[in-house]
Design a protein around this nucleic acid. Sequence first.
DNA 1: CTGAAAGCGCTTACAG
DNA 2: CTGAAAGCGCTTACAG
Lengths: 338, 338
Amino acid sequence: MSRDERRLTSFDVAAKAGVSQSTVSRALSGSPTITEATRTRVIEAARELGYVVDERAARLRSGKSKTIAVVVIGRAGQGAASVNPFYYSLLGSVCTAAAQRGYQALVSIQSEPEHFFGQFIERGQADAVVVLGTATNREAWRYFDDYRETQARMAFWGSPFDGPGYVRSDNKAGARLAVERLVQGGYKRIGFIGETDGAQRQFRERYEGYCETLEAAGLPCFDAVTASGETREAQGAGAVKALLAQKTGYDAVFSACDAMALGALTALREADKSVPGDFGVIGFDGLGVGAHSSPPLTTIEPDFAEAGLNLVEAALGGADEDRDRRVSVHLVERASAR
Amino acid sequence: MSRDERRLTSFDVAAKAGVSQSTVSRALSGSPTITEATRTRVIEAARELGYVVDERAARLRSGKSKTIAVVVIGRAGQGAASVNPFYYSLLGSVCTAAAQRGYQALVSIQSEPEHFFGQFIERGQADAVVVLGTATNREAWRYFDDYRETQARMAFWGSPFDGPGYVRSDNKAGARLAVERLVQGGYKRIGFIGETDGAQRQFRERYEGYCETLEAAGLPCFDAVTASGETREAQGAGAVKALLAQKTGYDAVFSACDAMALGALTALREADKSVPGDFGVIGFDGLGVGAHSSPPLTTIEPDFAEAGLNLVEAALGGADEDRDRRVSVHLVERASAR
DNA sequence: CTGAAAGCGCTTACAG
DNA sequence: CTGAAAGCGCTTACAG
């Protein structure tokens, strides 16, 4: 209720409980070497005084920080407004997963080269760092890919690079789910939109899954179609136009990401193709906005809670733990495939 | 490159630069009492060694933490998945605003009563705390409303409560923009959906702005219409159905929030009302998903960057600064009003 | 302008 | 099981 002038310390609690300061520390930190009676007395004294330990001191002394630094990469020149909902959801999952493991989350949104910073562990502020965000900010990813040479306890999502600590969706399984769903809907000539060059490793994996599934189904798979554009949506719209112009007789597309799929939907509407009747579309990412498009977008969604847990574990585990971490995905049935 | 076994300290830098440890500290912290020549030498030594100050020690000693704790309130029983994109954007803006003022952001997502926790300042982890999130988690807001009795340096967004430190949109101005836009579109019987009882102070303000603007335009204003439902969208859809059933001849609605407006759009489509031809809809919040609804939703959006800055300043300023902080809003012209 | 010293509030060997 | 003491790595009076 009242605001004390002097900060309460463990000595105040010790005095009140009639024990030494070290006993207070042990009692409050859950040391097993303390009698239950003593512990209760100390906890009660602390409660009455409104005392909580000063984490700066506790962490300095113990050498730990019980914190995970989470760096969210945005588009250069745009800041927080450029972070898409997918990464915010992932951020939320990481914070939650960290809390479940007893860690706090120090969040930093980084877009500009002059502010790239990763030395949270060296500053004693974090025990591990998770980096996530748009693959399009190449400079940022280059910075963190270099930086990881100096630190093992890191994990990544969204990077165009690869290596230990990189966590991602099970892209092939996702592609399979999507393409099988399209096949099951009776579509015969299924295209793929999204670039498959080095930039987006995830996209390449989705493309591979697309081809494999189609081949297994005895259906033809086609070259990936792309188009340039400012935004992912413009790219998706352009790709669908290009694909329609090909006159291969496409009747469906699997899009490498939802943002492009949304653009595809717009282009299809303009081309008077009815979705899902004439043409099927399935995206990838599980963006919430897809639920409001017309028609609502059927998509592949990674399990966010699992993604958060994987990122936290990979970061805490360090580079030693060199396994390929794949997050499971599932089909979100909406209305863009018949 | 190499991973040192022993942590580097300011003594190592001192030895390398040929100065005392206190000089290293002063040089690196930007103390004006240091010669430029000395500072350069120290900085260079630190750079070569790869030294950065241990913030736990620096903050313990200085008594500051240069951190803002950001608590994001989710729906009980649902966690991070229940945090909507609006609050994630706000979270991002707060992190960015904090960084601009030289603060870091410690983020904690809280949904369950047993994990409500606000004592970041007492733990020495933050200099101020910002709480934001859904007004529907009453218990959480009650907790933080109680907690603020013990701490001045707090700011809030989304609370059903009121008082110093509560930051919100300029709701009346927003309502005016929306209703004037509807009037300008030629709509004559404009309804309001959203509850106006105590729960959502923001909604009441929007309703008041709605009435005032309509009266000023010489048009009738009506009682707010609501409907119960699991989600905001279901509530919006229900409200529109109820409103259509009234046969007052409504030809537009101003919705207290976008989520309800999205539901309204669905209900209107089902009722074969063409939007914006037969019926106009304008929401409030600026949700990104509104850009993909059919038709895309015209809405009122608060300035997120300004909101973040306001929250950070209000929190840092403490309760002394007892002014009513209003964040400016603007009309996002999309296609649900002719 | 710089150095030697104290001390922030804890945790953790070291004794008993 | 508990206490007295050292020390984590800084910042900041206090001197000079």
